[in-house]
C-alpha cells in the first residue's frame, strides 16, 4: 500500500477522481459523486474542529446553509454574478463562525456540543421564519449555476463534476498544509489535552477560534458550491440531520485523518444509493452502524489503514532490531 503515500498517492487519487466520468454510466452517477464531494469539503471542515481540535460542533450544517443562502440570496435577490457571491459564501460563514466561536468556545466538551446544537437550530429557525429574505419554507429557486470562466463553461454535468473535484482537491491540499503545520500540531495538542496545551504556552481561545473559523469557512464554501450545483435551497439544509450525516461520514472514513471525510462521504453516498429501497429509513441501518463504529472501530477506514501500517512498521522495526542484536551477539561470540 506504499503507493498511496506522498505525492504519488495524491496523483493516483486525483487521477481516479478525474477518470470517474469515463466509468460513470450516466449523469445521475456524476450527480451522486459531485454531491458526495461537496459534502466531503464540508465534512473536512468539521474534521478540523472536531477531529483535530477535539470540539464536537453539532451546528455545522447551519454554517453550510449560511454559505448556500449567501449565494442564493446574493445571486437571486441582488443579482450578483455567481463567482462574487461564491467568494462571499465562505467569508460570511467564517465571520458568523467567528462570533459564534468567540462565545461558544469558552465552553468545554458537553457544553460546547449542546451550545452548538442550539446555534444550529437557531440558524435553522431564522432561515425558516425570515420569509422576506430567505423565502421561508419555500426556499430559494432559480439560483444561477457557476458562470463561465473565460472559455470554460459549466453547463454539462461533466464540467460541473470537474469543478467540484477542483475545489475538493484545493480544499484537501490546504487542509493537508494546515494540519501538518505548527498550527495543526497546536490544534492536535489542544485535542489531546487542553490543560497540557495551555501549560505549553498555547493560547487556547485564539487557536480554538481560528480552528472554528476555518472549519466554518469550509462549510460556507461547500454550501456555496451546493447552491450553485443543486440550484435551489430550502431551510432543510440547516437541519441537524445534515450535521449528523456529516458526523457519520467522519466516523466511517476516520475522524482526525485527512482523507477520512472523503472516504466516508463517498462510501456512505454509494451505500445509500444501494439502499434506495429504504428511502427515508436508511438511518435504521446507519444509526446502529454509527454506534458499532464508535464502539468497535473508532478510527474509521483511514484510521484502520494507518493503524495497520503502523503495526507493520513496528513489526519490521522489531524484526530489524532482533536481527541486529543477533548479529551483535554473533560478533560477540566470534571475538
Amino acid at each position: 500500500m506504499k503507493y498511496l503515500q506522498g505525492k504519488a498517492g495524491w496523483a493516483i487519487l486525483i487521477a481516479l477522481a478525474l477518470l470517474f466520468p469515463l466509468v460513470a454510466g450516466n449523469n445521475y452517477q456524476l450527480y451522486v459523486m459531485s454531491l458526495a464531494f461537496i459534502f466531503a469539503i464540508s465534512t473536512a471542515g468539521l474534521n478540523l474542529i472536531t477531529g483535530y481540535t477535539g470540539q464536537l460542533n453539532l451546528g455545522h450544517a447551519g454554517f453550510m446553509a449560511i454559505g448556500a443562502y449567501t449565494v442564493g440570496i446574493l445571486t437571486v435577490t441582488y443579482e450578483w454574478p455567481f463567482w462574487g457571491a461564491f467568494a462571499m459564501s465562505g467569508v460570511v460563514a467564517g465571520v458568523i463562525g467567528f462570533f459564534v466561536g468567540v462565545v461558544s468556545l469558552r465552553l468545554k466538551e458537553h457544553f460546547f456540543a449542546i451550545f452548538t446544537l442550539c446555534v444550529g437550530f437557531i440558524i435553522y429557525l431564522i432561515i425558516e421564519k425570515w420569509d422576506s429574505v430567505t423565502g421561508g419554507t419555500v426556499g430559494i429557486i432559480g439560483i444561477p449555476g457557476p458562470a463561465p470562466i473565460g472559455p470554460i463553461t459549466f453547463d454539462s454535468a461533466i464540467s460541473q463534476y470537474y469543478l467540484v473535484v477542483f475545489f475538493l482537491v484545493v480544499s484537501l491540499w490546504l487542509m493537508h498544509r494546515i494540519v501538518n503545520s505548527l498550527l495543526g500540531r497546536t490544534f492536535i495538542a489542544i485535542r489531546n489535552s487542553d490543560d497540557l496545551a495551555q501549560a505549553l504556552g498555547i493560547n487556547l481561545m485564539r487557536n480554538k477560534t481560528l480552528s472554528f473559523v476555518l472549519s466554518t469557512f469550509y462549510a460556507g464554501i461547500a454550501g456555496g458550491l451546493y447552491a450553485g450545483y443543486v440550484r435551489f435551497l430550502g431551510p432543510d439544509l440547516a437541519g441537524t440531520h445534515y450535521t449528523f450525516d456529516m458526523i457519520t461520514y467522519l466516523l466511517v472514513g476516520g475522524i482526525g485523518t485527512l482523507m477520512g471525510p472523503v472516504a466516508g462521504s463517498l462510501l456512505v453516498a454509494w451505500v445509500t444509493q444501494s439502499l434506495q429501497f429504504l428511502q427515508d429509513y436508511r438511518m435504521v441501518v446507519f444509526g446502529p452502524l454509527l454506534v458499532l463504529l464508535v464502539i468497535f472501530f473508532p478510527h474509521g477506514i483511514v484510521g484502520f489503514y494507518y493503524k495497520k501500517r503502523m503495526e507493520r512498521e513496528m513489526k519490521k522495526r522489531a524484526a530489524e532490531a532482533s536481527r541486529a542484536q543477533a548479529v551483535k551477539k554473533e560478533a560477540g561470540t566470534n571475538a
Partner: peptide, 23 residues
C-alpha cells in the same frame, strides 16, 4: 472511551429510533 464517542453513539441511537418509528 473519549468523551466525544458516547455523544456520537447517542446520536446513532437517536437516528435509529427516529427512522425505526418512521418505518
Amino acid at each position: 472511551a473519549p468523551p466525544i464517542h458516547d455523544k456520537i453513539a447517542a446520536i446513532g441511537i437517536l437516528l435509529f429510533l427516529e427512522a425505526g418509528v418512521m418505518a
